[in-house]
């Protein structure tokens, strides 16, 4: 009798769990543009020890870096683990999780969002589709602590249905389609493909540095200590955003100095915009994000830099990377209509 009862309880809870997970999945799919940014969830689908590098950062990262383009040009596998306004405090945990499947990869960490305060949506963008692990739990608490999000509001990061359940009247076909996007994280959203804004006026380069107190010092130090302790191959990048804010530019300079003091490499690409060949009149859809044209130039430039610096090999003829070949060509077909013939040739030749 007792045994039967226990079996019944387990059965009930098991079915409930399965139903819950599926229902929650349906509701998560309706979260605006997030469905277009499969940077996190598809990262975990990558074969173990198959990536040359992992690019961690915010929306600027997935706007600037297009993994399929780098594959098409150099045959290197560098994919993003990025999400909108991703808090810098999360980087340490993303590396920790990344190391579980990609222990030999180089971790490229963009520090562009280090100035941001952490708000609830930023954590949602990061964790909603993130597979559950203790590292994820620690990351949620670290982000929430940093953003001073009350305890009563933290449960929704573990159970996003708390936030999204009231969208039941907006559900559509896309909510029930769980097929992966399969573009190796290549961006295809409207602004990225279609919009160009002249940001020439906003471009500023500074050499002054902010005071230590203005930096998220503890967060940076914790990240650097973690990387040092675990002997992570890491490169700290400042993506080439076009900024007017002197405060932010000074912070980037100070942060890079701190990072270098720990013996890590940095790459502040903001002063290198002319060298990369980016056109401020046509290559951005806003100061913080490039469009497809700017992204193409940056990806080719940075891809070449990474390949040379870390000795990444060309894997295009390796059968194990057939998925890269397939998904990259799919991505190339999508962006081709938006590129000039010359731009397209830069990738393929």
């Amino acid at each position: 009798m007792q045994k039967r009862r226990i079996v019944k309880i387990i059965l009930f809870l098991l079915i409930l769990f399965v139903l819950f997970m599926n229902v929650e999945k349906v509701f998560k799919e309706s979260v605006g543009d997030q469905a277009k940014y499969p940077q996190i969830v598809e990262f975990f689908d990558e074969r173990e020890e198959s990536l040359d590098a992992v690019f961690i950062g915010s929306s600027s990262t997935f706007a600037f870096w297009q993994a399929p383009i780098a594959w098409e040009k150099y045959g290197i596998t560098v994919r993003c683990m990025a999400s909108n306004t991703q808090p810098l405090v999360a980087a340490r945990y993303l590396i920790e999780d990344g190391l579980k499947t990609q222990p030999d990869a180089v971790y490229v960490v963009a520090i562009n969002t280090m100035h941001e305060t952490v708000k609830s949506p930023a954590i949602h963008y990061l964790v909603d589709k993130y597979p559950f692990s203790m590292t994820k739990a620690k990351m949620i608490f670290a982000c929430a602590d940093y953003g001073e999000i009350p305890w009563s509001e933290r449960l929704e990061f573990f159970f996003p249905i708390i936030r999204y359940h009231n969208r039941w009247s907006e559900l559509g076909e896309q909510n029930f389609n769980n097929a992966p996007v399969g573009l190796k994280g290549g961006s295809t959203y409207k602004n990225f493909l279609e919009v160009a804004t002249d940001v020439t006026e906003e471009y500023t380069v500074l050499e002054e540095k902010a005071a230590k107190e203005e930096l998220p010092y503890d967060t940076l130090v914790e990240l650097l200590e973690f990387c040092k302790e675990n002997e992570v191959k890491v490169l700290f990048v400042t993506n080439p955003q076009v900024l007017k804010s002197e405060k932010r530019l000074k912070k980037y300079n100070a942060a890079n100095e701190l990072i270098e003091s720990y013996g890590f490499d940095t790459l502040n690409t903001i002063p290198m915009i002319p060298e990369i060949g980016m056109d401020l009149a046509t290559d951005y859809y806003n100061g913080s994000h490039t469009n497809v044209h700017g992204s193409l130039k940056y990806t080719l430039w940075l891809g070449n830099y990474l390949k040379d610096k870390y000795g990444f090999t060309d894997k295009r003829s390796d059968g194990d990377y057939a998925d890269w070949e397939q998904e990259s060509s799919k991505y190339m077909k999508i962006i081709k209509p938006y590129l000039s013939e010359e731009e397209y040739k830069r990738i393929t030749e």
């Binding site: 139903l19 609830s120 936030r163 359940h165 039941w168």
Partner: peptide
Amino acid sequence: NLVFRYLILYIAIFAVLIFGIYGPGY
């Protein structure tokens, strides 16, 4: 029967979860 009992409970649980007015949007 067990199936019917479970069904009623699941419907009630998900009705509350989905159609309940709670959470940060409210």
